[in-house]
Design a protein around this nucleic acid. Structure first.
Length: 292
DNA sequence: AAGATTGTTGCTTA
DNA sequence: TTAAGCAACAATCT
């Protein structure tokens, strides 16, 4: 579920907390979530520190100090990375509207905690993933380079230009939504933000990519940058279970115009109905009146 | 109870 | 060789 703004939020204020702290030990409760041999995984991390944290698209890249390796973390649909200074459980006293679900999320580890990083100062990272699609992986410089090469142009970066997007769309027979979701072509956007970007750009998601007008391509560039920037500012969108590294929800949900608003009047034209259909295999929301 | 869910990959088909 | 369309991954919710 986390798309680029959510992963960036985590990168900025969650993982940073663990910079320059030594990994004392690792607890791996579900080995399949680690996509490297466990021995290599442990050897690369234990006794070392996180030197820096980078991101490409929705992938987090941790440079490990005193090691030629990098730790990759991908959250896929339901992954969480939560940092705690101490592994303190909430004990009683939450009669002020906190639901059982919140308590469960706040008590770590929980049944979806697959890997725990124990740092030497007593703080911890919890890698949680309900659906177990996410992963952790150790790679070397070469492997990292190859992975990075697979990613397409990304909003808020230098390469996200009209000319570049135009050449991505050229001769592309599939619909614009599938193109914007394809991380090899355009990286960072996911199902929520693609719907929002196309809504703001007044483009129907099933339009064949190759026939978009120049003005529409420019609108996508501008609106993607704007929406992503604002979503980062508001710490991402929590639709069901995204949380930042401190276990807090994102606040961008209030700005969503079409995603999750099916059946409502369009908030822009006031006339059309927000419609939900399946495009590119995903639930797709749009106003059939003002998107053309 | 069937169908849906914010991501990606790998298979099949054209 | 490339592109497009799906199923699969697994758990939970409606």
């Amino acid at each position: 579920m986390p798309e680029m703004p959510e992963v960036e939020t985590i990168r900025r204020d969650v993982i940073k907390k663990a910079l320059r702290k030594t990994v004392d030990s690792l607890e791996i409760n579900y080995a399949k979530i680690v996509k490297s041999p466990i021995q290599i995984f442990k050897k690369a991390l234990i006794g070392n520190q996180f030197k820096s944290i980078d991101r490409i698209g929705k992938l987090l890249i941790v440079k490990i100090d005193k090691s030629p390796y990098y730790l990759l973390l991908h959250l896929k649909m339901t992954g969480q990375i939560i940092y705690r200074k101490q592994n303190r459980l909430l004990i009683g006293g939450h009669s002020n509207g906190i639901r059982d679900k919140d308590v469960e999320i706040n008590s770590l580890p929980n049944k979806h905690t697959h890997v725990i990083f124990n740092f030497s100062d007593g703080s911890k990272f919890f890698f949680n993933d309900m659906r177990k699609f996410g992963y952790l992986k150790i790679v070397n410089e070469d492997e990292l380079k190859k992975i990075k090469e697979q990613y397409g142009i990304e909003p808020l970066t230098k390469k996200f230009t009209f000319e570049n997007l135009k050449s991505v769309l050229k001769n592309r027979k599939t619909n614009i939504k599938a193109v914007l979701l394809n991380q090899k072509l355009v990286s960072g956007l996911g199902n929520i933000y693609v719907d929002e970007v196309l809504f703001k750009s007044k483009i129907l998601p099933n339009r064949p990519a190759q026939y978009l007008k120049e003005q529409e391509i420019k609108a996508i560039i501008e609106n993607a940058n704007q929406i992503i920037l604002k979503a980062i500012k508001y710490r991402g969108t929590t639709f069901s279970n995204y949380m930042d590294a401190s276990g807090r929800k994102g606040n961008y949900s209030q700005f969503l115009r079409v995603f999750g608003h099916q059946g409502e009047k369009c908030s822009d034209c006031g006339q059309g109905l927000v419609t939900k259909i399946k495009i590119a295999g995903r639930g797709t929301h749009f106003c059939s009146k003002c998107q053309v």
